[in-house]
Design a binder for these strands. Structure first.
Lengths: 225, 225
DNA sequence: TGACAATATGAACATATTATGAAGTTTTTC
DNA sequence: GAAAAACTTCATAATATGTTCATATTGTCA
């Protein structure tokens, strides 16, 4: 099943070695890079299944690398940060990473995260979740819920798509608004509430009481099923 | 297991001798230094497993020494102070010490603290052989405890995350309040007590009697498991 | 030990956030 | 260009959360 290639970008040799050992014990192949400058060229010519990317690096920092990789590849990336507080900032930047781990972490946890992300990605790749209640067709701008077609407006569709892009993740209203428009118009944050209300109404008609969209007080909305 | 070298920096000979005896009885090796001026050179050429550092010293004070050591080493440091009130000040200075003991202390307590700090540091270095009871996901704003999901509010979540960011470290109420808000609102310090109370209640439901969050009299709170 | 200070806790109080219906705007459709 | 649909804003109700307060309990230190 495994045997996938994991790229470890980490300048601290001891930690890199530790990760390598644990990952290989879990039957992954690994490659370690210690300098930020070498990462992008390597990723371009090799194709790792996942990248563990430390954010503090000599040469070029992890954020820049993540952004650059995202211009040409959708390879799963797990960011490693030194401070918990930093994760908040990173989330705001929308780098496109798939998960975040905070130092110090146990190698066991790291391996678990790697597996979780891979599982998620593979599920998506294998043609959308089989028994998923949601199905999204970005080309046709159509979405279905429990097998039944939802008649969504464009804004509602984009809102739902954004929320579904990361199940469980809490999106701030600002993050959601960004996704809704191509131009950068300024609209009232409360507008989101109204779209959520309308979207909920349509979901409710199909599956009453499921409460797919939940508000997280003081933060934003998430999809929680 | 032990046999680690503990550096005791203490100018009062009687106390130094007492500590030495107790620590050696617990199978540590010790070295005593009575003057502040001799500490840094000694630490540079020897490598203690931990330093017990009195803050009031002839020659050079403990704070300056701690700061200086931190420029070249991450060796665990336990600061020894004469008064509880002082710990508060020390915390604000962010010296990078790992724990604080207040005089007068029982040698037994000192040994316990030394062991606790060493255990913690080793756990971190070795990548944690123990399965962590806490797991937090900043993206989903979800935290689990002993594998079970905690339904935390945002403030509670941030509070827990901050406490967890450095296990064992004591955080003052001010430090904790800073983490709780993006804006710089002014709230009563006692507010933290209430949030801690609520958080404890939720932890208690999962693991009664574990007392994960401890109050440190006159200073603040820490997580100590 | 006794005086004092800090923490714990339940309840009252205050605030902030979300939900919702409706009205006002803009955009699309015919 | 009128009507319909979609979008945004607004006002207010409902609710969740945060804060303070008063008192009991516990810890510290002389």
């Amino acid at each position: 099943m495994e045997n996938s290639l994991i790229l470890i970008v980490e300048d601290e040799p001891k930690l890199a070695q530790l990760l390598r050992e644990y990952l290989e014990q879990a039957n992954f192949r690994t490659h370690v890079i210690g300098s930020g400058l070498d990462v992008v060229p390597w990723v371009e010519s090799n194709i790792p299944a996942l990248i563990l990317l430390d954010i503090m690096l000599p040469g070029k920092d992890g954020m820049a690398i993540c952004r650059e990789i995202r211009t040409f590849s959708q390879v799963p990336i797990i960011m490693v940060t030194a401070r918990v507080e930093e994760i908040d900032r990173l989330l705001g930047l929308e780098l496109g990473a798939d998960d975040y781990i905070c130092k110090p972490f146990s190698p066991r946890e790291a391996v678990a995260r790697v597996k979780a992300v891979l599982r998620r990605v593979r599920l998506q790749e294998s043609g959308g979740l089989e028994q998923d209640v949601f199905h999204i067709d970005s080309e046709k701008y159509q979405a279905s819920y429990h097998g039944r077609q939802l008649g969504l407006t464009v804004v509602e569709f984009r809102l739902l798509r954004k929320l579904l892009s990361r199940r469980g993740k809490v999106f701030s209203r600002d993050q959601l608004l960004d996704q809704l428009y191509d131009d950068h118009r300024i609209v009232n944050q409360r507008t989101i509430d109204t779209h959520v209300k309308n979207l909920r109404k349509k979901l409710e008609e199909i599956a009453p009481g499921e409460n797919a969209i939940r508000a997280v007080y003081g933060v934003g909305y998430k999809i929680d099923i």
